[in-house]
Amino acid sequence: MADNDIKIVSFLCNWCSYGAADLAGVSRLEYPADIRVIRIPCSGRMSPKFILSALREGADAVWVSG
């Protein structure tokens, strides 16, 4: 990742938060471009290893939502 910008890795549940992020677009809301979404089938799919790995790869924050 480039050093000068913040990166947030977000793990979004397909059934709720991913849909909410879609709706934010449909509603033309604006938010900072720092997040990168990884779609997961359910927040139950989350493993601590994903969070640690994202941080090790240089993410400034990890956001799990479901």
Binding site: A21, D22, L23, A24, G25, V26, R28, L29, E30, Y31, A33, R36, V37
Partner: peptide, 21 residues
Amino acid sequence: TNIRNHNSWVHKNNPDIATQK
């Protein structure tokens, strides 16, 4: 991958950053 709802629609004032994203 969603480059519309999660990108062009929500970062419309930052085309460079949106392209990078």
